[in-house]
Amino acid sequence: MLHYVSEILPSLLSGAWMTINIFFWTLIASIPLGILGSLGLTSKIAPLRWILKFYVWLMRGTPLLLQLIFVFYGLPIVGIIFQRYDAALFAFILNYTAYFAEIFRGGFQAIDPGQFESARVLRLTRGQTLIKIVIPQVVKIVVPSIGNETINLIKDSSLVYVIGLGDLLRAGNVATARDVTLLPLVLVGIIYLLMTAVATFVLRKVEQHYRAWR
C-alpha cells in the first residue's frame, strides 16, 4: 500500500499545488479589491454605490460554479477567451471580492464616526486616517469572517474541476477511476484537511496578534 501511495502522491501533490495557487492568488487579489469595493459601497457617490451593490448582489446571489462555467464556456461565445487557469482565477477573484467587500463594508460601518472626527481635528489626511487608524480596527473586526471565507475558498477551489483544471480533486478522481481504489480519494481528503488546518493555524495567529488591544 505504501508503494501505491508513493506512486500516486506526486500527481496528488501537483494537483494540490494548483489548488494552493488558485487559493493564494485569489486571496492576494480579492482582499485589497474587497477593501476598495467596501469603500465604494459606502461612498457618497450614489452611482458608484449602485453599481457595486448590483455587483455584490449578482456575485453572492448566483453559484460560483455557474460563474466559473459562464467565464470559461460562456464568454468565448461572445469572443472573450480565457485560458483555463486565467478563467478560474478571474471567476474566483470576482466572486471573492464581492464577499470580502461586503464583509469590509460591515467592518467600516462598525467604526465610531468619532474616530474620523478625532483624526480630523488632529489634521490627519483621509489616507492617513484610513491606514493608521481605521483599517487596523476594521481588520480586527473582520478577521473571523475573512477566516471563514478563507477556509471556504480552499474547498471551493475544487470547483475548477468543471473547467478541466488539474487540481487536487481531479488528481484524486483520476487515480481512483484508473486503479479502482478508494485510497486516492481518502488521501485527497487528508490533504484538504491539512490545508485547512494550516489556514486555521495562521488565522489563529492573526487573531492573537489583534488581541493586543480592544
Binding site: 465610531d112 468619532g114 474616530q115 472626527e117 478625532s118 483624526a119 481635528v121 493608521k132 487608524i133 487596523p136 480596527q137 480586527k140 488591544w213 480592544r214
Partner: peptide
C-alpha cells in the same frame, strides 16, 4: 479638541 468620550485610537 478633547472629546466628551475622548476618542482615543484603540489600536495605538
Amino acid at each position: 479638541v478633547v472629546f466628551q468620550d475622548f476618542q482615543l485610537f484603540p489600536n495605538l
